[in-house]
Amino acid sequence: MSTAVVVIAGCAIVTVAIKAAGPVALGGRELPDSVQRILALVAPALLAALVVVSALADEDEWAIGADTAGVAAAAVLFWRTGSVVGCVVIAAVVTALLRAM
């Protein structure tokens, strides 16, 4: 139990510290226009990387499996319908069906 408490407290502290770092360090300063334009492009880069790492990798190696197909199905469904819930559900259903086969 004490291990869990240390891990939880540690994770909470680093999470808040990282999320707060930018807003505190920069204050309310306006960033130059060129920087703003770069920052507007950070989201697609980060999110694409997150998708790749969570769907195509296990720890530190590439891994293509049933979940990869499930996530691909989710991408198509969201692109066609825009449903976030449908997207998450179809990922689980496709992955489960492939694993059951």
Partner: peptide, 21 residues
């Protein structure tokens, strides 16, 4: 894993990503 629960989190990010493109 039998229910594909581990595919939900990446799918969540897919939805965010497609919205950003």
């Amino acid at each position: 894993k039998d229910f594909g629960v581990d595919a939900m989190f990446p799918a969540f990010f897919v939805a965010l990503l497609v919205s950003e493109i």
